[in-house]
């Protein structure tokens, strides 16, 4: 049931697709770099969890989806939002707590949603989004609307109890949900070897009859291909799958994490050998789909989008004081 071969064929993406993936991943990376800067300047409050290094996971999975399919994740979530088509302006302004943000500044990094883009958050409680995503999939099945819900969680959340309560019901009722473990190898500062008795997380669904697959989460095309198979399976009523994305985050768990639990050499090696953006860049250059100069132009465009979002996020006004007592109840 569990396959466990990391490498899938990587050559089956068109020129347009590869260029789009390159652009989408670069947007996430540059956005996160800028978010880190704004946090350092005190313009973003609370916590800030950056997605740098893991970009291929969300970009590849999003390419496997149909319009209307849902996405839900925890708090390392800016990449998921951008991949789902939410604007850099709206996400950045939410991080700075301004009225131009997706939650009008009232939610911040951990409480941001877009029903229009089918992004359901953005959750601060580790593992809680897994039962919520399973509930979304239950609603899809109940409504027979053909939608699939991607439910992301990390290797730390993989040890939470409600994950397995969700697995049981999702498999029992054959819900159209996909469980995607983003195994970046560290639950905050604890390596997977120190926290998990079974470190091959794609095997965690076996006792629930949920098939699992290990995927190279640094290879956007491999992610997309695994995603397509699993999404199709879920949509056809065969129930959930568990995809383990082997990935790596370059930055600390949050901005306040000095990351002393791993060596600089380890991080540098991952960056040098597995970087998901460098990987796509090489595919593009090797195939002759674009020149270095053309890719640099894309980088310039992306930088300008991100710079604009940072400007917007600082110029957008704070929420009006009258917003203090709104969004508490829905008028019945």
């Amino acid at each position: 049931m569990a396959k466990g071969n990391g490498k899938q064929a990587s050559a089956e993406a068109s020129k347009d697709e590869l260029l789009q993936y390159y652009r989408d991943m670069l947007l996430i990376r540059r956005f996160e770099e800028r978010a880190g800067q704004l946090y350092g300047m005190g313009l973003i409050g609370g916590f800030c969890h950056l997605y740098i290094g893991q970009e291929a996971v969300v970009v590849g999975m999003q390419a496997a989806l149909r319009e209307g399919d849902q996405v839900i994740t925890a708090y390392r979530d800016h990449g998921h939002m951008l991949a789902a088509g939410m604007t850099a302006n709206g996400v950045m302004a939410e991080l700075t707590g301004r009225s131009g943000g997706y939650s009008r500044g009232k939610g911040g990094s951990m409480h941001m949603f877009s029903i229009e883009k089918a992004f359901y958050g953005g959750h601060g409680i580790v593992g809680a989004q897994v039962s919520l995503g399973t509930g979304l999939a239950f609603a899809n099945k109940y409504r027979k609307d053909g939608k699939v819900c991607l439910t992301y969680f990390g290797d730390g959340a993989a040890n939470q109890g409600q994950v397995y309560e969700s697995f049981n019901l999702a498999a029992l009722w054959k819900l159209p949900v996909l469980y995607i473990v983003e195994n970046n190898q560290y639950a905050m500062g604890t390596s997977i070897q120190r926290s998990s008795s079974e470190t091959h997380l794609h095997k965690r669904g076996v006792s629930f009859n949920i098939p699992g697959e290990e995927v190279d989460g640094m290879d956007v095309v491999a992610v997309r291909e695994a995603g397509k198979r699993a999404v199709e399976r879920a949509r056809s009523g065969e129930g959930p799958m568990l995809l383990e994305m082997k990935t790596y985050r370059y930055r600390g768990h949050s901005m306040s994490d000095p990351a002393k639990y791993r060596t600089k050499e380890e991080v540098e090696e991952q960056k040098a050998k597995r970087d998901p953006i460098d990987h796509v860049k090489k595919l593009i250059i090797d195939a002759g789909y674009a020149s270095e100069d053309e890719l640099k132009n894309i980088d310039r465009e992306i930088r300008s989008i991100v710079t604009d979002s940072a400007t917007f996020a600082q110029k957008s006004p704070e929420p009006d004081p009258s917003e203090l007592m709104t969004d508490i109840y829905i008028e019945a």
Partner: peptide, 16 residues
């Protein structure tokens, strides 16, 4: 605290 969920925005948080 005022009778509302605590907002993230700095101005609303201070008011709360």
């Amino acid at each position: 605290q005022v009778d509302a969920p605590l907002a993230y925005a700095a101005n609303l948080e201070a008011m709360s």
